[in-house]
Design a protein around this nucleic acid. Structure first.
Lengths: 112, 112
DNA sequence: TCTCCATATGTAGCGTCGCAAGGTATTGTG
DNA sequence: CACAATACCTTGCGACGCTACATATGGAGA
């Protein structure tokens, strides 16, 4: 699928994944892929900067761990992040409803 | 709502509106607003360049009209545009299903 | 008549942000 | 010793929606 479709929705997805529990970057990518049926499969160059952005914004926080000699950075939601996730969900509901309505308005043949 | 959410979906919406019948730019904006319950309310600086892009891509075509002394440019779908709209619908279905699944995965409290 | 708004179209430049590409380091395997 | 998998990071590009501005006509109101 065209990648730019994500624009503006990435933050919501990252927050939603972290709501299920703390994850490090690599694991976040895994969760997105499995949770979406392989539809959402993001490169590290997309996810890591996005996580940094969210941390800078105070929506998530991180702790460094060392597991088997490898350094990991585990992210978890902050209170502000939980709030933001709620807003994102509301925005997504409204946006997706609007787009679905407009796209289905013509002949909607697929639903048959 | 945040505007960048549209990224990548604008073309689909424009094609869908034009599927209902030929429209000029101003009317396209109107149709999007009314068809989405005022959620999708786009500035002309967004819509006109997008229509030009779609025409350059061969997905829509235009005819100049003069109605009441005012020049209008009426756009209509081409065969390629109809095909593209179908693909856009499929992509949207997959994308929105994936995002909805991921966003609802945690606690989904709103649906009660 | 003059002004102002709605209609109707257009462009230039900016900012955002996802992505491709490249880079570092460790553990384990052959 | 080489190579893959794990795990992290950054630079720079490109796409594209938006703000702001510019232009022109018709009709309503002062």
């Amino acid at each position: 699928m065209r990648p730019e479709l994500l624009k503006g929705h990435l933050d919501a997805l990252l927050l939603a994944v972290l709501e299920e529990g703390p994850r490090h970057g690599y694991a976040v990518i895994e969760s997105l892929r499995t949770g979406s049926g392989a539809t959402i499969d993001l490169p590290t160059g997309t996810v890591y900067p996005a996580l940094h952005r969210l941390e800078r914004a105070g929506l998530i926080a991180s702790d460094w761990q060392t597991v088997g000699g490898r350094r990991r950075r585990a992210y978890h939601l902050t209170a502000a992040g939980i709030r933001a996730l709620g807003e994102h969900r509301a925005v997504w509901d409204e946006f997706s409803a609007a787009v679905t309505a407009l796209l289905g308005g013509g002949t909607r043949p697929s639903t048959a």
